[in-house]
Design a protein around this nucleic acid. Sequence first.
DNA 1: CCTGACGAGTCAATCGATTGACCATCATCT
DNA 2: AGATGATGGTCAATCGATTGACTCGTCAGG
Lengths: 349, 349
Amino acid sequence: MSSSTKASDAKKAVTLLDVATRAGVDRSVVSRVLSDDPRLSIRDETRARVLAAVRELDYRPNALARSLRTRRADTYGLLIPDFGNPVYASIIQGAEAAAIARDCVLMTGSVGAGPAQAAHHLDVIGRGRVDGLLLAGDHTAGASLEELDRRGIPWLLVNRRLPRARRWVVLDDEEAAGLAVRHLIGLGHERIAHVAGPRDADTARRRMRGWRTAMRAAGLSTPASAAVVSDYTPEGGAAATRELLTRRDRPTAILVANIAAAIGTLAVCGELGVSVPGELSVVAVHDLALAAFLRPALTTVRTPLEKLGERAIELLASTAPDAPIEEVVTGSLELVDRGSTAPPRGAAA
Amino acid sequence: MSSSTKASDAKKAVTLLDVATRAGVDRSVVSRVLSDDPRLSIRDETRARVLAAVRELDYRPNALARSLRTRRADTYGLLIPDFGNPVYASIIQGAEAAAIARDCVLMTGSVGAGPAQAAHHLDVIGRGRVDGLLLAGDHTAGASLEELDRRGIPWLLVNRRLPRARRWVVLDDEEAAGLAVRHLIGLGHERIAHVAGPRDADTARRRMRGWRTAMRAAGLSTPASAAVVSDYTPEGGAAATRELLTRRDRPTAILVANIAAAIGTLAVCGELGVSVPGELSVVAVHDLALAAFLRPALTTVRTPLEKLGERAIELLASTAPDAPIEEVVTGSLELVDRGSTAPPRGAAA
DNA sequence: CCTGACGAGTCAATCGATTGACCATCATCT
DNA sequence: AGATGATGGTCAATCGATTGACTCGTCAGG
């Protein structure tokens, strides 16, 4: 296989000049034929010769040279907190699909290993390599945005907002939470607690608001004690759930702000011998294939994470770098009932 | 924020010429100072002026121009099956860290959406954009390798081997499986079944061999019926487990070839009312944080997936494109006992 | 017969950094 | 004095594609 490469190790790529020579025309003709330049007039026969040469030599333009000249890298960057987080996996997939659809490349980096890694990305990705940068999740120091502005690199916050940054695209977190709460209310629950996300996460705030709004709309109270701040990890979810379950008036249902945290919730229930959904109903925001295989299978609200990623690329690619972008990706919210929710014990139903 | 960019939308980047002008020297001097060219002799004072100009203008070299000239993109590609698969997430993380350590960029793409997506990546990533390509997992059509060879792009298979491709780096799958089996044997198990990976997956074959070898070394038999082919998904693991559990002489322990499949195994046990580890011990290859939060918490063999990713980049970067690479990343295997394994019912222990 | 217009391509500058070859001073050695 | 050799840089070609300006020939119209 690779031995077929043998000594001719650094085989040089086919260039525009090779094609032009073979077709007996100038390089510019080849370039213009390939880009369908309307200002080029050319005989059909010549065009055919050019295209034949392109095909025979299996030519493809050097992306670097083109980008240098055109000042467009045809590449977008995507920064995420951590590849291990399946929520971001879905966003990546959407973004990747959208990038491919535009004949662009997506470069995804994580900042998991700390600010040094983030700095490296901002540095290396610096001017020239990407046409724009998606910043997904809570990780970019505010300073980075100014840095990007200074360098003239368009950016867009994804699944996250910042007060002073008017370029973001998010999910309808409020409605997602509301949907879950209304499902629980529909089953007859009244004491519905909320395992919330981190206090500084914008998604967490919006889901919390969705929970509260839906509760109030049904005439139910939302005491401060009914919501416990946590983070989007099983550990966090477990701790918050433990706290809720050891209270006097234990809730009959919990809305968990994130599916990863909900895994912790289920684990704690198992540990404490609290039967789900018998004694406690659990529903989480975000759906994963995994949810069907938990014990019990987890009821979730499916969110259009891939669409979010797609939309992010589209917006970044099609909007002027200094124009505000404030978009909520709506629709596609759906409650996936898998059995971790049921009417409360002793419900009239 | 972005409004600070205002009308000066396309702010042009600082170039070598800008720096040179400011320092009162030729562009080549700046370039040589920055690259520590030993053939340049320069007065300390001049060097200081150059460095000052670089700092004041916050210059950074345009990566595209440099790559065009040097014929090195300082970028590596990584193709994976699917971003949603946490096993590959770990590989990505390792590869990313290694790339950063070499001051390179990693471009990760998935082929989840089918061969069209793979083709796009191979096409777009084409000559010039990457210095080499890591192919992780079972997805690349064999033809792609010849295509890459033809284009002179070095590649390396990761966590996978192919008969005719002598460039790969894999884990010590055989030992990982063996470790798990010996743990079960140590607990007193004798009927240890194996939920194997897909027949065409090289990792699956090696884990199967590890299972068989360890069993035989202990004088235990490995009838064909004790191994059920599956795939690396919860669905697959569930189906295979169901088959094993409905047999006459049900095993007392199962080695599952992959943690995702093991999630399916636990789900089926729950469904059929088979108590784990009371009636059945379960251990899986690959460790994830998630494992601690399953019910019961899952015993696993931790594998150095990140190291695999790191090593892959190192090998790709440092080995001639036509030299064979056949490396097994060893060490770091460790059994993580979390409670899904126990002595068999009625064991002497 | 001359002008103009069009058809069919060609020329050459440009993007920004790198790098081999070269040059101008000045001091040193014989 | 003239050759030798550092020292301290400069010049310009090059990577490969793009694109505005330009040229050459031919044909129609006046």
